[in-house]
Nucleic acid binder design. Structure first.
Lengths: 110, 110
DNA sequence: CTGTTTTATCGTAATATTACAATATAAATA
DNA sequence: TATTTATATTGTAATATTACGATAAAACAG
């Protein structure tokens, strides 16, 4: 018990859930917003913008990286983080499809 | 420790995170898909479509209801569940805004 | 009123997440 | 090489999530 029954759901359902899970924390939303709004995306700058300790931010960045939403490039001593545009459009399409489907059909409870 | 520091984030960040959290489980994605695809949305039918016990499905439905993604109307002995169109469009806009912002700007790591 | 059907709630075990101090690692610089 | 700087990893405590059996509650049928 206590373990999600991943094997009983479709790949699409699991993939969508994994993406949403990565987005399901205000700190990770905040990190993504910082990456958009700031010219620079050095890890240290992200830490300064957030009300969390450095190891915690590092952990959140790791989760965003693990689903491909974000990537990091070594730049001397620092690491430059940014939105991973390659995977981002795929994610956007998956989410768009879900939301569009939900908006179009409505057959009961009206 | 172990508790999300909600109070240090903006209302928008927390709201977005809460919505994504509700979507962050394959069973809840599956429930939403069933609500779209099936003519009927009686709770019992949802339970039959999913590989989970009735109390587990009931718990997932409760979470979807708590963020307003889904609503339920009593219909005799059963309950008719459906997508809550009123809150759905708000959610869609919030998510769209986030995704659009992320797609437009890209200033480094190129 | 009694039994049936349908859904929700309670209790609880297993597992996952969140946060951070302490520490490790890796690159630049003195 | 030793030191500094920037980030990652480890270990761990507190809390949350997931799943389901048992049971309650609510509506209907007889």
């Amino acid at each position: 018990m206590g373990l999600t029954k991943t094997e009983f759901f479709t790949q699409e359902q699991n993939q969508l859930a994994a993406i949403f899970k990565a987005l399901a924390h205000p700190a990770r939303i905040a990190i993504l917003q910082v990456l958009i709004e700031k010219d620079t995306c050095i890890c240290g700058d992200i830490v300064e913008e957030l009300p969390l300790a450095q190891p915690t931010v590092s952990q959140h960045l790791k989760e965003l990286k693990s689903v491909g939403l974000v990537k990091g490039e070594i730049e001397g001593t620092s690491i430059c983080y940014c939105i991973n545009q390659e995977t981002w459009s795929q994610v956007k399409h998956l989410v768009d499809d879900l939301f569009t489907a939900l908006s179009v059909n409505q057959k009961c409870c009206s």
